[in-house]
Design a protein around this nucleic acid. Structure first.
Lengths: 256, 256
DNA sequence: TTTTAGGGCAGGTCTAGACCAGTGCGGTCC
DNA sequence: GGACCGCACTGGTCTAGACCTGCCCTAAAA
């Protein structure tokens, strides 16, 4: 016998400004947490609609959210059931630069190029700009303990860094971007893959052609605007990436 | 100017038995793949509803699905936009098959071995156990669309999974660990590096010896105890890792 | 020239119905 | 007793509207 909708305490406040389905979702969430062991059934959608005086579509919207969070599970013809909490590993954060320091190596960099170019079709797509847009290209060979570690190439829209090319190549690109141009990177995304060393990269990194490299493409954003696209090739024999994983845990409280 | 709904080819077949929103979802998906670079706008929901002769709620259902897949993104007052494609996987270990299906690929796995072994010095160190401790070794070749994707090897202390070897090799290891043995992974760490395919791995993955592979070693923990050590080799040509980064002070505008 | 007020359009939410398909139970007919 | 059928119930899908807020642009006002 399915649980009765009357068993759910609390009510919907239509004047609160909070979306009804959000209120119902949270009511259901706490109801589940308090009185529903895994496998138990929720009241049917029609029961809930009647209990709270809502349209069934609205009830479904609340249930949809919890199904999306994998808190509950629908079974056609049977009902909606509480799931066993499920493992869901997710990369949360990579403290990339800290990680470099943590290795305790002596860093150095050799500037390979520092110039203005125009965006190719590929770069235009990566930076979400028009083809031909002026870019600053900054390419370096990064060393650790005197031995090549990676080849790094950054592309920044030129209009965001006026006068950057007039000075010396910066030691720390991100420091200059934030201190001199107010471009504080807020978020970004890394695309990580394995690749084989091309002849030119192999020579720079002092490895054999075809050696495995870790390729990391990064898009860095300020607000919604991308201000940096970079590609790095790391020597696989010298560099490993450490990524902490954690369970999703509590959900955020956005939506108003 | 937003793209015109008329630009989308194809139509809805109301007699096919396939849900309309599923048909529209796939139409949109292929339209996006073919003609929408990241950042471009989709036709508005009302345009789509008119173009295909559907209720707006039905169109929203199709769009909801793609938003849930993070293929597109809604912005109130502006429209719906194509996101940067994520060729990620991150949740793969929880449910490789679900993840593959989500990406429209047909998952499969071939069990290479499923047996009890004793911990070598290396494995003992990785699992923080004594040498000689009985372990369950589970090695698989994971396929997507019939083509090899990765070679996966898991090591689990045998005393944590009594009777596991008596049954069939599990389809989803992590599901069995949590549902049958109550081992819900709470956190872990990945070590990511690039490597070259060894002859045996190359044969399994159907690539040439020396091809770049992404090697991911994972330690997964329940409470403070490690319960799984795994090593996976992913084909670099089929697998990329997508890692979102968040810097201190990030604020990510949007989200009501 | 700068500021402000609309208007148009975007997505967000909600309603009150409709019919479909899968499930399980109970009763009927053999 | 056992096979079967149908009904009541579940979630799944869909409609055709409604009104809300947020965003941007433009034209009028300052």
């Amino acid at each position: 016998m399915p649980s009765s909708a009357a068993a759910i305490t609390g009510d919907i406040d239509r004047t609160s400004g909070t979306a009804i389905y959000v209120q119902l979702r949270e009511l259901l969430r706490s109801y589940i947490a308090q009185s529903c062991p895994p496998g138990s059934a929720l009241p049917s959608e029609r029961d809930l609609a009647e209990r709270f005086g809502l349209a069934r579509m609205t009830v479904r919207q609340a249930i949809d959210a919890l199904v999306g969070e994998e808190v509950i599970e629908r079974v056609v013809g049977l009902g909606t059931f509480v799931r066993r909490p499920k493992l869901d590993l997710q990369v949360k954060l990579t403290s990339y630069s800290e990680e470099m320091q943590r290795r305790g190596m002596v860093p150095a960099a050799k500037v390979l190029s520092f110039e203005q170019i125009t965006a190719s079709a590929f770069l235009a797509r990566e930076l979400q700009l028009d083809e031909g847009t002026p870019l600053v290209r900054f390419r370096r060979l990064l060393l650790a303990d005197g031995e090549p570690m990676s080849v790094d190439e950054n592309f920044i829209p030129a209009h965001r860094v006026p006068g950057l090319l007039d000075g010396e190549p910066p030691t720390s690109l991100y420091n200059v971007l934030s201190e001199q141009f107010g471009l504080v990177m807020e978020w970004g995304e890394d695309m990580i893959e394995a690749t084989a060393a091309s002849p030119s990269t192999a020579r720079l990194l002092n490895v054999e052609v075809g050696s495995p490299l870790l390729k990391i493409q990064r898009h860095a954003f300020v607000a919604r605007a991308m201000v940096d696209y970079s590609v790095s090739y790391y020597r696989a024999d010298r560099y490993k990436l450490w990524v902490p994983l954690q369970r999703p845990g509590a959900r955020r409280a956005r939506n108003h």
